[in-house]
Computed example of a mutant assay.
Amino acid sequence: MRYDPPRPAGRLLLTPEDKDAPARVRRLRRLGLGERAEPALDAFADRLAEVAAVPYSMVNFIDENHQFFAGLHTPDPGGPGALPATAADDGGRAAPEVGRYLTRDYGFCPHVVVRRKALVLEDVCDYPRFAGNPVVDEMGVRSYLGAPLIDHTGIALGTVCVVDVEPRPWGTAGLETIKSLAAELVGQIERREGGGGI
């Protein structure tokens, strides 16, 4: 499923400029990443969700225009932790399902890639810079924890992240865990380049 919501008219979106996107796209293509879902990356996302005890987790590769969740874990629709049914867009329609694609204006991973540092948002609403992101109102996101996937070339390929619909006290332990898991996945990606698999 692909979800490319329209950009709200007159709304200032603070998605950072990404000067490294062309180099990232070339690197991802060489690695064969970012264009299709991969069972190994879905399994990694499942593990992220289990470790962090969250309903949503992603292995996210970002190009010039979109984010692609090559690894994705979501709860069963209507199950515990699912996006609230009350979240709706301006037309009164139900909130979109979490699919494999998202524009760069949605979410927080583009910030992680450009900053090249982990991002901890225990309650997104506490941060004016991030509280206005469309995922907050339209999808019910309240908490985010993500780390960049920086390989040996120095390119930030994407992120690993976990998301919840409730505020979460991630703390130092959460930050260290997401950074450790990001480093682990980078190691797997680099082994893939050498002929191994993820």
Results as ranks from 00 to 15, higher is better:
128 P>M: 08
185 L>Q: 09
42 D>F: 00
83 L>P: 00
98 V>T: 10
26 R>S: 14
28 L>P: 04
11 R>D: 14
3 Y>S: 11
29 R>S: 12
9 A>N: 08
102 L>Y: 08
123 D>Q: 06
74 T>K: 04
131 A>M: 05
33 L>N: 04
36 R>T: 14
150 I>Q: 06
184 E>H: 15
127 Y>H: 15
59 V>A: 03
4 D>Q: 14
31 L>E: 04
57 S>W: 07
7 R>S: 12
124 V>A: 11
175 L>T: 14
62 I>L: 13
93 R>Y: 12
47 R>A: 03
107 G>M: 10
186 V>A: 09
63 D>N: 15
101 Y>Q: 11
122 E>N: 14
10 G>D: 09
162 V>L: 08
28 L>S: 03
135 V>Q: 02
127 Y>L: 06
197 G>K: 04
198 I>C: 05
49 A>Y: 06
86 T>I: 06
129 R>V: 13
143 S>K: 10
112 V>P: 00
135 V>R: 01
13 L>K: 05
3 Y>K: 06
121 L>S: 10
65 N>H: 15
86 T>W: 11
72 L>E: 01
38 E>F: 02
147 A>Q: 06
18 D>A: 05
21 A>Q: 06
83 L>A: 13
1 M>I: 13
183 A>L: 15
158 G>W: 06
64 E>V: 09
119 L>W: 06
196 G>Y: 00
71 G>F: 00
110 P>H: 07
44 F>M: 00
97 E>P: 02
77 P>E: 13
150 I>M: 08
162 V>M: 11
30 R>I: 01
134 P>C: 01
